[in-house]
Write a protein that binds this DNA or RNA. Structure first.
Lengths: 271, 271
DNA sequence: AACTTGATTTTCATTGTACGCAAACTAGAG
DNA sequence: CTCTAGTTTGCGTACAATGAAAATCAAGTT
């Protein structure tokens, strides 16, 4: 029982905008449920509740509401939930409005035409790189990257590019506690190594994922900038090492650099 | 009408959900805001508030929460909101998990290879047909259909197919009040005409949009069924009349029917 | 069949939160 | 500078959302 404190404990600490000011808890929770479900792919009520960190009954009601709005689907047969059409519709609106994607589209296609490998477009979101667009290569072997999926920042070319021009503290914060998760023996797991790598990226103008994510797959990523000259996205090409040897790096870079330049120009970037 | 009738009018199917039971108002409103914004594309606070039918302050707080979660973006420059990356991510999860899309993908590609025109995949959602997948044709002329966009049911081939096997009352309900919106002189605007058209669809096995949506564009749609034998989606091909004459209808249908059969089979349909 | 176990749905009282109103700010336009 | 339209914040209250626990339901196990 809080003793009746004076009604005006108005702290006027300047402009400190409290992180979660004006935040609506219920909506926040609902979105957490939706996001958790998206990550799970397909899940039961209890699984979602656990993933979202909410009680079963609350999750039940939130999921039910999401279902009624079409953001979530429920398969009667199995009793499992999954993301619904409405979510897809809303997501498509993002793709439509997104200037980045339309600016990159044609160049990505011609890049794929020239190099024959799959091109990806990724942006930074909190602690991960999110692939927002992909143009598949002619080659049969399919690359891993899944649209909309998030990738760890420590072991992907796009991750390096997106962080390369950020401050060290920021980089450290986004990568989280060491050692970073490793996928292969080449994965970078310590901050100093990563920071040194970023220096290379700044010097060379591109980042390499040299079988750090998956053995047998090499990947080159370049920065895209807009009118503010900040790096807003990263373009990447992934290919099996058999078709992308170390010797080919300069050739790949020449082509990718040209594409990046064109796309950046469309975004308002000036040299 | 808060009828306090005993909650046990349990229907066998375990699923007797009352329309809005267990619905969370705040989340509902938040989702309405998100959906409205998706439709507007890019909008100011007041525009969204108006579209969602909510007060400015409520909308402000909901938008702010959506922004903090990444579902909505806010451009400082213009002060306008738009759909954010997070929405895209969640939507992509739908696409990934969607068995329909993966079942249809390869057949759509080969259909496009054979016919040279753009193929679309649509499902029914409330009162509209939603295009969830598209494979673009080689031809230069770009078709109208936009991914994730909803289409009116009265003047599209997919709309007719999706409703053809529904009861008349249901059809009437989904189409809303007459006269239906017309895009061209060929558009169907009255219920009796539409119901007669649905009879044709059932008899022929396909629906035609004969310049009903746009002059110069013809479109053929076929039903896709799953293991329940219900129509769960519709496949369609759109082409300018110059490349898709009435005489070609049988040829198109032969090809489309084959594709539909294969896709339906993948969904568990048995003849 | 009767039991067990675990998940889903509903009820219910309580609390805390989301809401609308209105005031305080902003920022353009005239 | 004033006006107007839009955005943001404070505040008190109604009532919406919540968790706990009870009631169902589904599926094994004996």
């Amino acid at each position: 029982m809080t003793d009746t404190s004076p009604p005006n404990t108005r702290q006027k600490t300047g402009r400190a905008r409290t992180a979660d000011a004006g935040s609506v808890r219920t909506l926040e929770r609902g979105l957490t449920v939706l996001t958790s479900l998206a990550e799970l792919g397909q899940a039961s009520l209890t699984q979602v509740a656990k993933a979202a960190g909410l009680s079963a009954s609350t999750t039940y009601r939130l999921l039910e509401t999401l279902r009624q709005s079409g953001f979530v689907e429920w398969e009667e047969r199995s009793g499992l939930f999954s993301v619904g059409v409405r979510s897809y519709q809303v997501g498509a609106a993002f793709a439509g409005r997104n200037t980045l994607m339309s600016a990159a589209q044609s160049e990505m296609v011609s890049l794929v035409d020239d190099l024959g490998e799959t091109a990806n477009l990724a942006v930074l979101r909190e602690n991960e790189a999110v692939y927002i667009h992909q143009v598949e290569g002619r080659q049969l072997v399919r690359m891993f990257a899944q649209l909309g999926a998030g990738t760890l920042l420590n072991c992907s070319g796009v991750g390096k590019v997106l962080l390369a021009w950020h401050g060290e503290a920021d980089v450290a914060g986004r990568l989280g506690p060491q050692p970073y998760m490793a996928f292969t023996a080449n994965s970078i797991t310590a901050l100093p190594d990563y920071l040194r790598e970023l220096q290379n990226v700044r010097a060379q103008g591109y980042a390499l994922d040299d079988e750090e994510r998956e053995i047998g797959v090499r990947c080159m990523a370049t920065p895209l900038r807009d009118h503010t000259r900040q790096v807003v996205a990263s373009l990447s090409i992934s290919a099996p090492t058999s078709r992308f040897s170390r010797e080919q790096i300069p050739a790949f870079y020449t082509r990718m650099e040209a594409a990046s330049r064109v796309i950046s120009a469309r975004l308002g970037w000036t040299p």
